[in-house]
Amino acid sequence: MGLFTKDIKTMDDLFVHQLQDIYYAEQQLVKALPKMAEKATDKQLKQGFLTHLDETKTHVQRLEQVFQMHGAEVKAVDCPAIDGIIKEANQTAGEVADKSVLDAALINAAQAAEHYEIVRYGSLIAWAKQLGRNDCAALLQKTLDEEKATDKKLNALAESKINLRAAS
Rank of each mutant, 00 (worst) to 15 (best):
M1W: 10
F4S: 12
K6G: 06
D7A: 09
I8C: 05
K9P: 04
V16H: 00
H17D: 13
L19I: 00
I22M: 00
Y23F: 09
Q27C: 13
Q28M: 14
V30R: 08
V30W: 14
L33K: 06
P34T: 06
P34C: 04
A37E: 02
A40Y: 00
K46Q: 11
K46A: 02
Q47Y: 13
G48F: 12
F49S: 06
L53T: 10
T56M: 02
K57Y: 04
T58M: 12
T58K: 14
R62D: 06
L63K: 05
E64Y: 05
V66L: 00
G71I: 02
A72L: 01
E73G: 02
V74K: 04
V74R: 00
A76T: 05
C79L: 15
I82R: 13
I82A: 06
G84I: 08
I86L: 07
N90G: 13
A93P: 03
G94F: 15
E95S: 13
K99Q: 14
K99D: 11
L102M: 07
L102S: 05
A105D: 03
A105T: 01
I107P: 01
I107W: 03
I107M: 02
N108Y: 02
Q111S: 03
A112F: 15
A112W: 13
A113L: 04
E114L: 06
E114S: 09
Y116L: 04
E117N: 05
I118Q: 11
V119I: 10
R120D: 03
Y121V: 00
Y121I: 03
S123E: 06
A128F: 08
L131F: 03
D135E: 08
C136M: 15
C136V: 14
A138T: 14
L139C: 15
L139W: 11
L140G: 05
L140F: 02
L144V: 08
D145I: 01
E147C: 08
K148N: 11
T150H: 09
D151Y: 11
K152Q: 15
K153G: 02
L154C: 07
N155T: 13
A156S: 07
L157W: 01
E159T: 11
E159D: 09
I162S: 04
L164K: 14
A167N: 07
